[in-house]
């Protein structure tokens, strides 16, 4: 495990903690897209199908459990918690899951490392993760007021994949036979989707003003 990979995982973990902090302390999910959160729950379910069959390390298993558990609890809070669910902007969060999931599934069936159920699901999870942020970005554009925790959550989520790119470069250079085109390409697309957001995030940080995306 290299420093880029560890930092990436910790950034991912921090993004989840920031979101849960918002939900637990402010009892609010305002500005958060349930569609994106549901897509993440699907992403981790499909990717971690090997959790019971392939033991990699204690760290690996624990992190998988954390990402599965937190993604489903966030969805539960947003849908069913009697206070939290009231702050959900249902009318603004209109992106349809199927328009993201169907093309990803077709692509996973066509382009994969091996045509088995587990492999196709693993591949599908990467394609879907790459675009899962789109409902959130659309919601962000529509929401005029982006609170600090929401901004930080999305920044950390984007930073996590960007750091994974450094990890992939590092591993490609240092490890023989380390080639994973599917995570690389979808990870690159995923990071590029954050480009616009990063730009405005840094601008607001530099000028010390509240984050606002142009209409």
């Amino acid at each position: 495990m290299n420093i880029f990979r560890l930092t990436a995982d910790m950034t991912h973990l921090m993004s989840v903690i920031v979101l849960l902090l918002k939900i637990h302390t402010i009892k609010s999910c305002a500005g958060i897209s349930l569609k994106t959160q549901e897509l993440y729950a699907i992403v981790f379910t499909c990717r971690y199908l090997d959790i019971f069959t392939d033991f990699i390390s204690f760290y690996n298993t624990i992190m998988k459990v954390i990402f599965l558990w937190t993604s489903f609890s966030i969805v539960w809070y947003m849908r069913y918690h009697k206070i939290v669910r009231r702050s959900y902007d249902k009318d603004q969060d209109t992106f349809r899951h199927v328009f993201l999931m169907l093309p990803c599934l077709v692509l996973a069936l066509l382009i994969n490392e091996r045509f088995t159920f587990k492999e196709v699901m693993w591949t599908f999870s990467f394609y879907l993760e790459a675009v899962a942020i789109l409902p959130q970005l659309v919601l962000l554009q529509r929401t005029r007021n982006i609170d600090n925790l929401t901004g930080q959550y999305i920044f950390l989520l984007g930073a996590y994949r960007a750091l994974y790119i450094l990890n992939w470069i590092y591993r490609y250079v240092t490890e023989p036979n380390y080639v994973h085109w599917i995570p690389w390409m979808s990870g690159l697309v995923q990071t590029l989707l954050y480009g616009d957001f990063f730009y405005y995030y840094f601008l607001s940080w530099k000028n010390n003003v509240k984050l606002q995306l142009p209409a």
Partner: peptide, 10 residues
């Protein structure tokens, strides 16, 4: 061809 067994990333 990728090494299928090296899926140690999250």
């Amino acid at each position: 061809v990728a090494n299928i067994s090296s899926k140690d990333e999250l």
